[in-house]
């Protein structure tokens, strides 16, 4: 099995990509937290396509919604921190992909679906969520945390840096 190795420049590019996505996640979480009264309900109620009943059900169920809101806020913050720091990078990237996939599936930009919440651009099937999912996929399958990130330190300490 041939293993492709990355140059430092390539690794640096991945680290930058990781930090940018991390920043985005972190601020999305913090902004919702500091706003105090944020809730996913508005977004969920906008849901269309085949999963819409599930998302709407979440929004309409008071206790479920509270859990969804908290998981969103803290999920975003933790994933963001982990990505910036390169700590448990693979787990963080995968969790981020999962979260974004839920967002995407809730309001996918498919032909004929229109949303009341305006978006700042024009999308067909591919939107920024999907692009960010793709970027996180790259982060998840490369080892930028081992290059620059807490993972490097963790790896050394546990001696599991190389396989």
């Amino acid at each position: 099995m041939s293993e492709t190795r990355f140059s430092s420049l390539q690794m640096t590019a991945l680290v930058i990509l990781r930090a940018l996505i991390g920043w985005h996640f972190l601020y999305e979480g913090v902004a919702k937290l500091t706003r105090g009264n944020w809730s996913a309900a508005g977004f969920l109620l906008e849901s269309k396509w085949i999963f819409a009943p599930v998302f709407k059900w979440m929004a309409q169920n008071e206790s479920i919604l509270r859990v969804v809101d908290a998981m969103n806020i803290w999920g975003l913050i933790l994933i963001g921190l982990a990505l910036i720091l390169g700590c448990l990078t693979r787990t963080a990237a995968s969790a981020g992909m999962l979260l974004l996939t839920l967002y995407y599936l809730s309001t996918p930009p498919l032909v004929g679906l229109y949303y009341a919440i305006p978006s700042e651009g024009h999308y067909l099937i591919v939107n920024k969520n999907l692009v960010e999912i793709g970027a996180l996929f790259v982060i998840a399958v490369t080892r930028s945390g081992q290059f620059a990130g807490i993972d490097r330190i963790l790896g050394r300490l546990t001696g599991r840096s190389r396989r």
Binding site: A148, G149, I153
Partner: peptide, 11 residues
């Protein structure tokens, strides 16, 4: 390792 491990902390 240590320096590079913490390289993104300034972010």
């Amino acid at each position: 390792d240590f320096l590079q491990g913490l390289a993104t902390v300034p972010v």
